[in-house]
């Protein structure tokens, strides 16, 4: 983190003047700022996870935050190598630390937006028992957050002087699919289960269709 910025200032700048964060991430020492952004992203996801887990309560109040934070971290780790290669393909000369910083800044911005949606999500979680409805609502909020996060990544890509946008678009598709699948890999996040992780392998579309049909009711 740059010496002049406090932790809360970093978040404020990320929201109001993301250009400064982009500039810092492409400076000489982006690793410290990137690490802080990652911490903020994971904490933000965990806080939103408490809201997600509040539908069923009990142990889900710590399981959902843990799964959301871990799922975010795993998605970042799985997709970082391809992001770096695809950025290079787009003509970027940035270092791996800067690319990683761009990714965690995007995730951090998404997490901040999710925190903004948290009161709305909490109200709904207190007034409905429908896991399918709440799943759809959380997904909608996540997609809105991700849209702004990925838009920030696009701005960083332009800052790095990447010529082609096709590579970044392909990577975005892969990242979104990985994140969506992660929600099924780590299920149940909203509902309750006897196991921390599922016993059966499923693809997210299959799981969604089953959830909407009531087959996975309560899971």
């Amino acid at each position: 983190m740059p010496p002049s910025y406090g932790p809360l200032q970093v978040l404020e700048i990320l929201l109001k003047h993301p250009g400064r964060i982009i500039h810092e991430l492409h400076g000489a020492r982006p690793d410290r700022l990137a690490l802080w952004l990652l911490v903020f992203a994971l904490v933000g996801m965990a806080i939103y996870g408490v809201v997600v887990g509040s539908l069923t309560g009990g142990s889900q109040l710590w399981i959902a935050p843990a799964k959301l934070a871990l799922g975010t971290l795993f998605s970042v780790l799985i997709c970082l190598p391809s992001l770096y290669i695809f950025s290079c393909l787009g003509g970027s000369e940035a270092r791996l630390e800067s690319i990683a910083g761009a990714l965690v800044a995007a995730i951090c911005l998404s997490a901040l937006l999710l925190l903004g949606f948290a009161p709305v999500a909490w109200i709904f979680s207190q007034s409905t028992d429908s896991i399918a409805f709440l799943g759809g609502l959380h997904l909608l909020f996540w997609l809105i957050g991700l849209f702004f996060g990925l838009r920030l990544m696009g701005a960083m890509s332009r800052f790095r002087g990447e010529a082609g946008r096709g590579h970044l678009r392909t990577w975005r598709l892969i990242f979104i699919l990985v994140c969506l699948q992660m929600t099924t890999t780590l299920r149940p996040i909203i509902g309750r289960s006897d196991h921390f992780l599922p016993q059966e392998k499923k693809f997210f579309l299959t799981h969604w269709v089953e959830s909407l049909g009531g087959k996975a009711n309560g899971k």
Partner: peptide
């Protein structure tokens, strides 16, 4: 190189 980067996925 691209395939190696996609190996984690």
């Amino acid at each position: 190189l691209i395939l190696a980067a996609l190996s984690p996925v």
